[in-house]
Simulated scan of single mutants.
Amino acid sequence: MTANWYNIQDIDKLDTPALVVYPDRVKTNITTLTGMIDDAARLRPHVKTYKNAEVTGLLLDAGVRKFKCATIAEAELLAMSKAPDVLLAYQPEGPKLHRFIRLIHAYPQTHFSCLVDNAASAKEISDAAVRFKTNIDVYLDLNVGMNRTGIAPGFEALQLYMDCGVLPGISPVGLHAYDGHIHDIDLQKRADRCNFGFDPVLKLQQTIKSKGYPEPVIVAGGSPTFPIHAKRKYVECSPGTFVYWDKGYQVEMPEQDFLPSALVVTRVISLPGPTKLCLDVGHKSISAENELSKRIYFLNAPELYPVSQSEEHLVVEAGANHQYNVGDVFYGIPHHICPTVALYERVYTIENENISGEWLNQARDRKITI
């Protein structure tokens, strides 16, 4: 890879701020992913990072057949792309449950499943499935340390799994254990924490099997713990960020060889002082949930550091006697790519250093057709 791999020769055609994607690097990342696991059948990547049909197609071409998502729109995008197996990694409730069932009926060629973590929701899903004459496979959502959803692996989880087994309209088929709270830079520390949280999941799986149920499938992890779960036999792994990668994971997960393949391009629009530049990349253009210093990093201007940001503007310090002018272009790696993608209705693809097309981020919407 060349040092200036990101350069766009026809940059004058691109209004900013813009999200650009380099398809060749995306393909390389997919090849890297499949090379890190013994069988592509154990991959269940999360669509939340990229939200478009084109990357879904590249994953299908690479032999991926199972996917994970968090919204009905993401699930429908996958179904529209003819993904065979889609896990809604969310517990559908109320109107979302009704939309989920409509999705099941609308796309019979795709097998859908969802999460459950309590008896009341299991009963609601069961009642809706019976009412609308379908059967829904459910995965028990386990809390292995994220402390946002899920039931702790143990006796109550076993009882809930067994309760789901007798409810009409639903079938318990597996366990979902997302450990996205584990971000240690040191891989061994990350592995130790991952294994500590995963041991009760394995114990629950075998206890369920001992009760006469088919061995539950385990869907585990995200990008940080992917190298660890990938070594476990028969565990499905669900990384997502790998397709585009970002600065945050590039720093935190140095053992993973994925390439940044999505950038936010921005221009200097004003010179508010002798040492400062104002860029057209505000809160609406880059994920802003982290502190100001952890939002965007400029490949062709690494010395710049941010001093303030608002909805449409970012002010950066360039130092005395800088040579930058209004109109200069910067190529920025987002610190967190997933919510950054959700800010853009489309990405511009860059091939051979030129704009080659557009990919619509259809699933950034809350609704496609259902």
Rank of each mutant, 00 (worst) to 15 (best):
T207P: 01
G154R: 02
I370H: 06
P216V: 03
K233M: 08
L158Y: 03
L160G: 08
T275H: 10
L271V: 09
N195E: 10
R364F: 02
A220N: 04
Q109V: 02
G35D: 02
K133D: 12
K233E: 15
S310C: 11
D192E: 15
I208D: 08
K66V: 03
I286N: 03
A53S: 14
Y244V: 05
R42G: 05
A288W: 09
P272F: 04
P260W: 02
D12G: 08
I101N: 06
Q362T: 04
Y348C: 07
L158W: 03
D184V: 00
K27M: 10
S113P: 09
V235W: 11
V307H: 03
P17Q: 06
S121T: 13
G319H: 01
R190L: 05
Q362R: 13
G222W: 00
D38G: 13
A83C: 14
E291S: 15
V264I: 13
L167N: 02
V138Y: 10
N300T: 07
F242Y: 11
Y107G: 09
R44K: 12
E358H: 07
K68P: 00
K209A: 15
G57R: 11
R346L: 04
A220E: 02
G63Q: 06
A157L: 07
Y305E: 07
G150N: 08
N354Q: 14
E156Q: 14
R148V: 09
A119L: 14
L14G: 05
R193E: 12
K27C: 09
A230N: 09
F100M: 13
V316I: 10
I101Y: 10
S238F: 00
V144A: 08
H111I: 09
D257F: 08
A363E: 02
A128G: 02
G94F: 01
Q9T: 13
V47H: 07
V243R: 01
V217P: 02
